[in-house]
Design a binder for these strands. Structure first.
Length: 425
RNA sequence: GGAGAGAUGCCGGAGUGGUCGAACGGGCCUGACUCGAAAUCAGGUGUGCAGCUUGCUGUACCGGGAGUUCGAAUCUCCCUCUCUCCGCCA
């Protein structure tokens, strides 16, 4: 969340930002609750002072009658404190609920817009393939090659589940190794994270663990959720810590399964592997000093480009518009791969996303750093290295041949152990 | 899963219901001594929140939470974690 003092001192900018992001939140109410809270704290501190002074008078031996008077006074103060404390708890809860609704400020250069159509394309890489045959989509290819089985996934686990089979398995595992090798080269510490996280971490990162519209699976009665991304477990890694400035930036790479409810998401652009309840993702996560986050954000985007250039996948980079940023991001770049099976003519589909969340998550999760001069919240950034399901779509659809066989990009061959996948029958 | 022991500041480690934000030792910082260093001596050395004269005052914090009390690091209850032993397992 934002610093409440910042909200108070920059009310107009905060309001303009909320409307640019197409969100609803009430900063006036936040400021009002904050001021109420402060005067309540002031009042409580005075009562506690009175209590402490009263108690101090009773330290030594004293006349019983005088003692009884003081005890009565102490009891009276105690009642007031108890009452004040419950009012304060209530106020802070309301303040917190309200303050959390306020999104992060957006980068001044982020394009203003309502939805993903308004994202600004900033570059392209690779050639969109042209086929002298009618290209198949990845669902058909997966079936033909016998590497993705949606039918059995649906029978056993429900819609939007799938089995990877045969070469599909090695494709998934190979992509993980391929991505990790690149990330290690760039100085990331590789991790395999838990696939479950506590609700407070999930919401600290900015996901809503509850409610109809939540994209998160909660585990009944445990206070935990299935993670929607390793961003959650990597961001929780240093929650509540005071980091040493000389250890920054901390760069973590996390492999995890990702679970998403995707309630209500349907339609032609969500078919097959594009939108599923479970997939594997290799995520980048960085904790850094505030002055470094802009450069590191560019670096994360470059790494994503390196990964997909290595996979020979044609893609474009978009600068995400204010309305499509989500609450925590200050700025966000998406890589959109060309997917020949998308729609009638092929289309761009999101394959990675990297966000600079500045100190928005760090304030919620209480991640700070210190050096000789200061203590401050760190900046936190995340970026997709490879989201396997979507990477597999882009490989199958772009490198397919007339008979349905698929060429494996050169750099991936050593990781998967074969150069092409051919139809089984 | 069962039994026991424990959790106090940067670290180690005391702590009788009031004189405890916390002894003592170490570390670190500042100053003195020194050509310099070491040793020695003196002083300082946590965090959050609120207020105002922005440096102070107040308040809270001794694993976390609830309670008893005029008053809790200290007493009670619950939880978490660590260590030891036993059991079980991949």
């Amino acid at each position: 969340m934002l610093d409440i003092k910042f909200i108070r001192d920059n009310l107009d900018a905060v309001k303009a930002n909320i409307s640019a992001r197409n969100m609803t939140a009430d900063p006036d109410r936040v400021v009002r609750l904050y001021e109420e809270r402060n005067s309540r704290i002031q009042n409580l501190d005075e009562l506690r002072q009175a209590r402490n002074e009263n108690a101090k008078k009773m330290k030594g031996p004293m006349d019983n009658e005088a003692r009884q008077v003081l005890i009565a006074e102490g009891k009276r103060i105690k009642e007031q404190i108890t009452e004040g404390e419950s009012l304060l708890v209530d106020l802070e809860e309301r303040l917190n609920d309200e303050a959390r609704k306020i999104p992060n400020m957006a980068h001044p250069d982020a394009p203003i817009g309502k939805e993903d159509k308004d994202n600004l394309e900033i570059s392209r890489s690779g050639e969109v393939p042209s086929f002298d045959f009618t290209p198949r989509d990845h669902v058909e290819l997966g079936q033909l090659l016998d590497i993705i089985d949606f039918e059995t996934g649906t029978k056993v686990s429900g819609t939007k589940f799938y089995y990877l089979k045969n070469e599909g398995v090695f494709l998934e595992l190979g992509l993980i190794r391929y991505a990790l090798d690149i990330l290690r080269k760039h100085g990331f510490t590789p991790t395999i994270t838990p696939d479950i996280a506590k609700e407070e971490v999930v919401s600290g990162i900015g996901f809503n663990p509850r409610g109809e519209e939540s994209n998160i699976y909660t585990l009944e009665g445990t206070g935990t959720c299935l993670v929607g991304t390793a961003e959650i477990t990597l961001g929780g890694y240093h929650a509540g810590e005071m980091l040493n400035a000389e250890d920054l930036p901390i760069m973590l790479a996390g492999v995890s399964h990702c679970f998403r409810r995707e309630a209500g998401a349907a339609g032609q652009f969500s078919k097959g592997l594009y939108r599923v309840h479970q997939f594997t993702k290799i995520e980048m996560f960085v904790y850094c000093r505030p002055e470094d986050s802009a450069d590191i954000h560019e670096k994360l985007r470059e790494i994503e480009e390196e990964i997909f250039q290595g996979l020979e996948v044609p893609y474009r980079v978009v600068d995400t518009c204010t309305g499509d940023l989500g609450a925590p991001a200050y700025r966000k770049y998406d890589l959109e791969a060309w997917m020949p099976g998308r729609g009638d003519q092929g289309g761009w589909g999101e394959i990675t996303s990297t966000s600079n969340c500045t100190d928005y998550q760090a304030r919620r999760l209480n991640v700070r750093f210190k050096d000789d001069r200061q203590k401050a919240h760190v900046h936190m950034l995340n970026g997709t290295a490879v989201a396997n399901s979507r990477a597999i779509i882009s490989i199958l659809e772009n490198f397919q041949e007339a008979d349905g066989s698929v060429r494996i990009p050169k750099k991936l061959v050593p990781y998967v152990g074969f150069e092409r996948i051919s139809p089984r029958k």
